[in-house]
């Protein structure tokens, strides 16, 4: 039997990695896609790679006088939970996620943006953190700012986070729509949940790469590439305003 309350805390893990307070900036911009991380990294002045473990790397540098951390924020709910918690425990105050999603409304097009106001918890990891009725929420002020920055092609609403990309079945999807979801991803629920637990401000903007209603697939569509590129700009525009 284990007698300790918890095997590893975020602080334990950070310590084990010789992390020191101040290694992260006040603001973090995270993404699950290496190419987005790379493009974000190019915006930073004097970036220092001061966190890398388990295949996740984070750099901290300067943007318009502010210290900003960019890096890999997780691709699925479990790893997103891990990185989000490390960032929160490491002193980040404001978290911005640049992600992707599948749209669940007919009129949301490939290459549009979904700004998540909150998440519907279809994931498995958040139940380890919060009770059943908990509703993960984005920071309303950041979300509003993000929405006005992305205004053209932006849609605000709830994002359903699933663990099972290949089980986006009619029943699950329509169930999520009935609860108000306008898009699906695999990260946003733990991202908001953990930020809220740590009392941090978080927001998420997701590029639409496919549409579950129309069946359109745009994974390698130029509209997605272009939107992804602009996404980085909008993320940093937001940094100026926080």
């Amino acid at each position: 039997m284990m007698n300790r309350d918890i095997h590893l805390t975020a602080q334990d893990l950070l310590r084990a990695m010789q992390f020191k307070p101040g290694d992260f900036g006040e603001i973090a911009i995270v993404s699950g896609q290496p190419q987005r991380v790379q493009m974000a990294l190019e915006k930073l002045k004097n970036p220092l790679r001061n966190f890398s473990a388990m295949g996740y790397t984070l750099w901290t540098g300067e943007y318009k006088g502010k210290r900003v951390t960019v890096g890999h924020g997780g691709m699925y709910a479990p790893d997103a939970a891990l990185i989000t918690e490390l960032l929160c425990a490491g002193g980040v105050e404001c978290l911005i996620r640049l992600g992707s999603c599948g749209a669940m409304k007919k009129d949301i097009e490939i290459g549009d943006y979904v700004i998540a106001e909150g998440a519907i918890r279809g994931d498995g990891v958040t139940r380890y953190y919060v009770k059943d009725g908990f509703q993960p929420k984005a920071d309303p002020e950041l979300t509003q700012k993000l929405f006005s920055l992305c205004k053209k092609h932006a849609h605000k609403g709830l994002v359903w986070t699933t663990d099972a990309l290949l089980r986006e079945t009619k029943d699950f999807v329509n169930g999520a729509i009935a609860q108000g979801a306008i898009a699906v991803d695999m990260v946003t629920s733990p991202f908001f949940t953990i930020a809220q637990l740590y009392n941090k401000r978080a927001c998420a903007v997701l590029v639409v790469s496919d549409n579950l209603i129309t069946g359109e697939i745009g994974f390698a569509d130029i509209r997605v590439f272009d939107a992804e590129r602009r996404l980085i700009e909008r993320g940093f525009d937001l940094v100026r305003e926080v």
């Binding site: 190419q35 790379q38 493009m39 390698a220 130029i222 590439f225 272009d226 992804e228 590129r229």
Partner: peptide, 28 residues
């Protein structure tokens, strides 16, 4: 033409002339 990293480089990297990036765009 769908490799992450390459696509971003040839479409957006400003060290390449804009016309080159437009040619890349057609290929992508």
């Amino acid at each position: 033409y769908s490799k992450p990293g390459r696509v971003q480089r040839i479409l957006y990297d400003k060290r390449y002339h804009p016309f080159c990036r437009l040619i890349a765009r057609v290929y992508v």
